[in-house]
Design a protein around this nucleic acid. Structure first.
Lengths: 106, 106
DNA sequence: CTTAATATATCCGCAGCGGATATATTACTT
DNA sequence: AAGTAATATATCCGCTGCGGATATATTAAG
């Protein structure tokens, strides 16, 4: 669910594109099969984390079977909360020297 | 499992102490009940991620029922891999402006 | 023209989580 | 001294969500 939300944070995407995005986001480490994807999407639709989008990008060229999904406000909130949880864990791990600290100078 | 590994990364701990550590590490957001804890520990022992420790810290004062758990090399590897996965996700989220970028100057 | 990639969908096993419950000990309070 | 709360380990079991298998059709490529 988290990976789907992350994939959708960059804009609307249809199922197959979400799969590819998840794989790209994780450097191929997370490969999401159709079972996980469409099962999760169904649950997420019910939970109001994502919406089906009406608009079809380029209806001529587009595969008509495509169903585009969009992250909702609630979905964005859930994603932000989860990302913050991740951030805290990374910060904690850096404090404990379990992860090297990144350098960034503005 | 991840939270247990993280809790044990600071040194050996008995079950109840792990629960408390997990709660502390997550600012009370993750509360791990005995079902999750001891069930996970059993699986992790089987998987070789943790070991039971023989030594009892302060045998006089100590509750004799206490069983101390220690992270193994394999467990440390799994934790490191998972933390690295987290770090990458946080970095990605920062690139996409989903998370504010932290400042750190050496 | 045929093969691979794209695209959506369902089914079902099952691992792992999580609340409930049990039980005993230790520490604290009055 | 008694009683209450916190400490400590353990098992049971329901159920959610993941994940491989399978199915099917379309589009792109060579």
């Amino acid at each position: 669910m988290f990976h789907i939300l992350l994939a959708l944070s960059g804009g609307e995407r249809h199922g197959y594109a979400i799969m590819k995005q998840v794989e790209a986001d994780s450097q191929g480490k997370v490969s999401m099969g159709p079972g996980t994807l469409y099962g999760s999407l169904k649950r997420m639709l019910d939970a109001g984390l994502v919406d089906e989008s009406d608009k079809r990008i380029d209806p001529e060229m587009d595969d008509q079977r495509r169903i585009y999904y969009r992250i909702t406000g609630l979905g964005a909130q859930a994603l932000a909360a989860e990302l913050e949880r991740y951030r805290r864990i990374v910060a904690l791990a850096q404090q404990r020297k379990l992860l090297p600290r990144g350098f960034y100078v503005a």
